[in-house]
Structure formats: structure tokens, C-alpha cells
Design a protein around this nucleic acid. Structure first.
Lengths: 335, 335
DNA sequence: GTGAAAGCGCTAACAA
DNA sequence: TTGTTAGCGCTTTCAC
């Protein structure tokens, strides 16, 4: 019946009266093994259901043939699509993808990075959390062996691989569209200050306002971390004091918080206040009134990031050329 | 500056003029090592940023301290929450969780299971796809070494660990609620036939109809795989021929397809046709008209599944007692 | 064309 | 208390 313990090379070598090395070579289809021997070994191996122990293989070969990706939350469609793009490319090249979630905790993120290094992943895709300095620290401490590609939130320096969408452009277009709809008091629900995406989106928003001759009112700009609490406080305060006639939300979650808050307002504000936000949620278009969506090319971003990473993994000794790819986002649900 | 290659035990042992085993023991805080030596070794190790190679450790110890979970799609909130429940428990016990997606492909699923076995995960959480026989086949072929807990979609036999929600009860309540709303021609958008959840949900739906004295019309029951195409064809056909006054949808995706299809109908049907469906989507409550939701206790299910799995992993030699946990789902958004 | 043996980095039984 | 050594399962150099 079924073997109790997985069969290994030495089991086969004993059964067939061959050396372990011959068996290994035969299974790896080495040219220095006779056709006849190969046939015998391979057919016996498949008969007894031999599966190489990848742990042993990894230890020997000094690679694991998997890459890790660290995201804040997999339920966020944007990140889920990125992961899918990464898987698409990686699987095609015989790599597996291991997904980690930080749940927006820098502490978790740091532990995960350490773990990824200890487990000898061949590479890492990273969208670092708010606390860039701490993360940089860890990235240094794990040694030079781990190739990294950053995506979405990226460091400002140029000595790393990065894939992003054109946040400035997207924010500019979204804000301009709101202005075209006749909106003037446009609030900006921003993500954590200090990280790349927040800075660029704020810049695009401001530029659009100024371009239209509207002054930028700091009271209408609110930074929120990823806590619902914070976002809601900001929304309540904005409504009490400033009654914006539109919202520009900088993330998936903020978009939905905004939407929900606005829906709870008394009419006619509930239907008149327009919202545009970054979101890749598949069912965003079902909402009425509409939630206008800035959709990022997440799958594409994942593909490109994975390609960059696998390139640096395989081209070990070549001189490194750091890549910086920026893709356009698209504005949808604008009737 | 930074070491080019990760430091290993022998590096430390050389630097400190100690044997590798002493260093190993000192770092593992073995009682047979002098306090003084421990201090020296540990402080030096942290100075040079020593991190044990988990690959080597795994090979030696014959365990990897991680469990794998295979889900159809991480963007599906139901599965994302399950994963979070699993992570919660596993991380607390020092285990990591590796997430795999099948994208509803049996072929992918089988490859993943094989890979999980080859990479020597300590355990597996599995919600097997449609093709149970093929999956069973593989599960057998990988040998007895991999503890498994099934969740959501589970095998019918009793010689395995399972965690599910009470699909029969949930379907019964949902259908009964539609009947209370005065609906009579209630269509059932079912998942793939033959798997546990589909069977149970269909049973609950039928029982509720019969209980209310309504006969079960097979024309109103439509099975769909996970392809949008199939679901849409079913919906169109139902609308053309039978004009149901309500839909009971058996999955997240089907719920949203239904919702979208109904919204596209001419009034007054678009607002009168009621929909209730299984979904854990966070923003389902934002939809107007409402999408009534059967919400599964996914986080809880994940926690329980992980606990069962870690129990069987750690209690190696104890006699196995197979667990079967069934949790209630909740009906929401019913005004 | 095939075998013997070393070694990947670590732990632990056995010696001293 | 510390060192020596074998071995986890595999690949690969070197010898025959």
C-alpha cells in the first residue's frame, strides 16, 4: 500500500543496486547516464512515487525557487491583483510565490522580512509600510543576498528597483474631473503622510486645483492611517466645519469610508456630493450613487515587478541596472 | 560594513575559538552551557547579525514550522478572513502561514498540493475544488506525512478533520426570509453540483420551500461553475423564461452577478426582485437596493481549522480523533 | 557510464 | 562544560 515515509534517493539506489549519484543523475536527465539506466530509474521512481525533498535540494543548491511578496492586506483587490500578476510571471518561470500580510503593522512587516531572509527566499517584492526608516534598517541588516523590488509605496532613492502607477497624473485627472463637475470645495482624504503615494497624490490634487484657479485649503486635506477610527473622525470633522462638495480619496479603504459617510448625510447632500477614489474593487461599479474610481493597472504592475525581480535573481553577476517603471491609472464610473 | 554573505555557525565558532556545537547550544540556550560562554556567544552573534538558516534547520529537524492554506482566490473576502483567522492562531504558536491560490483550477490545485508536500509544510488547510476524486488521488499519493484539515468544501467521509458553516440552516433561513417577503418564484443560483456546500445549500433551500408549501421547480435551480460566462447565461435564461421574483445565490461571486443582472432589468423589477446570497464582502451593505447577505463566521472558521491542524501536528503519536465543527452563519441587510 | 565521497548549515548523540 | 562526529536528502566533483 502507501509508503509510510516518503521515498528518497537512497531507497531507489538500494532497490535498483545503483549508487545514489547515478539515481540522482538519471532523474535529472543527465547526459552522462545511459538511456537504459535512465529508463529503469525513472520508471521505478514514478512507480514508488518518488518526490524530491525540496528542503534538501534548497540547502544544496543555495536557492529555494520561490519569491516572497509582502502586502498590507490580501482582501484589498488592488493587492490581490498585484499578487495575481506576480504569480502569473513567477509560475511561468518555475517559481512559487509566497504571500505575506502585514495588516499595516510595521512590527509584523519587520518580522516577516527577517523570516523571508532566514527562509532563504530567492527574492522579495515589497510595498513598505509607513515607517520607512525602520524597514530600511532591517533591509540592511539581512545582508546583501536578498534581491528586492519595491512596488506601490516606494523609497525615494534611485538605487533600487521600483514599480508604481503615475499617482500624480491620476490624482490630477481625478481632481480635474471633479472640478469639471462644478465642484470647488474638494476635500482630500489622504493616506499616511510621508510615503511616496501620499505625497504624489497630494501634489496631483493641489496642481489640479491651482490649475483651475482654486486655492488649496489645508483644512480640506486630511491624513489618515489605516484605522477606520481616524478616517471617520476626519470625515465627521470635515462635514461639521467645512461641508465639502466633493471628496478625493487616496486608497481603497478611504474611498469606501467616504462613500459610506456621504450616504449617511441628509439629502440632497447624500446624492450631490461626489466622490472619486483610488480603488480596484471589482464591484465598485455597482454602487448608486456612483463611486468614481481611479483604477490602477495592478495585474500589470505585479507582472512587471515579478519580471524585474526574476531578472535580477537569474542575472547574478551582471552589473545591476536599477529599473523604475511608472504606469498610468484609469478613471472610471464617471457616467 | 555589511557582510557579503550571511554569517553561519562555523564563522562564529572560528572567531570565538569554540566548536560549532557549543555555539549552537549556546544560541539555543541549552542548559549544558556555561553562563559565561552563553553570554559571549550570544552577544557576538547579535553583533555580527547571525540569523539561523531555516533551510538547514528544517532539513535537520524534519519540520518547517509553517502550514500551508490553499484557497480558490484571496480577493474573495470569505477566504481572506479565513486566512486571517488561521494566521492569528498559527502565528501565536510560532508557525508561519503560506497562502496558495488555485483560481478554481483543479490542475493548479493538484500541483500546489504536490509542491506543499515536497516543500515539507508541517500541515495543510484545504478547501478542495470541484474535482474531488482527482484531489483525493493526489492526497493519497503524497504519503501519510501531511496532516490535513478541510474547511468550507469538505469530503463526505468521516475520517478527516473538517470545519464548515451550517450551510443547510443558512440556506433554509435565507429562503424562508424571502418567502416571508412574499416571494414565491425563488430561483437558486447554485455552485458546482456534487460538492458539499452546493448539496447542503440546495437542501436547505428546498426544505424551506416545501416547508412553506411551495413546490420545488427544477427550472429555477441553476448550477454554475466559477466562470462569469456560465452564470450570466443562466441568469439571462431564467429572466427570459421564468422571471423569478427572488434569487438565492450560493457564493460571493454569484451574489454579485445576480445583483448586477437584476439591476439591469427594467423597473419595477429592478427594485422589486429581492436577492439574498452568501457573501462576506465588507461593503455589501453599501448597495442600494439592498443585497441581503448570508455572512459566514470566516475568521472563526479559520481559527478553529488552524487549531485542529496544529493539534494534530504537535500531538504526533496520540491516537487520532477526527473533528467535525459546524458553525452558524448570520443573515444580514434585511432592513 | 557509474560510483565514492564531500559538503550545503544545522542539531544531537556520544566522548572526553 | 565542551568537542567530535554523524547525518538530515540532495547534487556534483573527482576518480575509475
Amino acid at each position: 500500500m502507501d509508503q509510510e515515509r516518503p521515498v528518497k534517493l537512497s531507497d531507489i539506489s538500494k532497490a535498483l543496486n545503483l549508487s545514489v549519484s547515478t539515481v540522482s543523475r538519471a532523474l535529472n536527465d543527465s547526459h552522462e547516464i545511459g538511456e537504459e539506466t535512465k529508463r529503469i530509474v525513472q520508471s521505478y521512481a514514478s512507480k514508488v512515487n518518488y518526490r524530491p525533498n525540496l528542503i534538501a535540494q534548497s540547502l544544496k543548491e543555495m536557492n529555494t525557487r520561490y519569491i516572497a511578496i509582502i502586502v498590507p492586506e490580501i482582501s484589498n483587490s488592488f493587492f490581490a491583483e498585484i499578487v495575481n500578476g506576480v504569480e502569473f510571471v513567477a509560475n511561468n518561470q518555475g517559481y512559487h510565490v509566497v504571500i505575506y500580510q502585514t495588516h499595516d503593522s510595521t512590527e509584523r512587516e519587520i518580522n516577516i522580512i527577517r523570516d523571508v531572509a532566514r527562509r532563504k527566499a530567492d527574492g522579495l517584492l515589497l510595498s513598505p509600510s509607513t515607517n520607512q526608516t525602520d524597514v530600511n534598517e532591517v533591509m540592511k541588516s539581512i545582508g546583501a543576498k536578498l534581491p528586492v523590488v519595491y512596488f506601490d509605496r516606494v523609497p525615494s532613492d534611485n538605487y533600487c528597483h521600483k514599480v508604481v502607477c503615475d499617482n500624480y497624473q491620476a490624482a490630477f485627472e481625478a481632481t480635474s474631473w471633479l472640478i469639471q463637475q462644478g465642484k470647488r470645495r474638494i476635500a482630500h482624504m489622504a493616506g499616511p503622510s510621508g510615503i511616496s503615494i501620499s505625497i504624489e497624490r497630494l501634489a496631483g490634487y493641489s496642481a489640479a486645483l491651482l490649475h483651475a484657479g482654486i486655492s488649496v485649503d489645508p483644512n480640506l486635506i486630511r491624513y489618515s492611517n489605516f484605522l477606520a477610527r481616524e478616517a471617520w473622525d476626519n470625515l465627521r470633522d470635515l462635514e461639521e466645519k467645512y461641508q465639502p462638495d466633493a471628496y478625493f480619496a487616496s486608497s481603497d479603504r478611504l474611498s469606501f469610508y467616504c462613500y459610506e459617510a456621504v450616504q449617511m448625510l441628509p439629502e440632497p447632500r447624500a446624492t450631490e456630493v461626489k466622490i472619486v477614489g483610488f480603488t480596484n474593487a471589482t464591484f465598485a461599479h455597482l454602487l448608486r450613487p456612483k463611486l468614481s474610481a481611479i483604477v490602477q493597472p495592478a495585474f500589470e504592475m505585479g507582472k512587471i515587478a515579478a519580471e524585474m525581480l526574476l531578472n535580477t535573481i537569474t542575472k547574478k553577476n551582471k552589473n545591476i541596472e536599477y529599473g523604475f517603471i511608472k504606469l498610468p491609472a484609469v478613471l472610471k464610473n464617471t457616467e
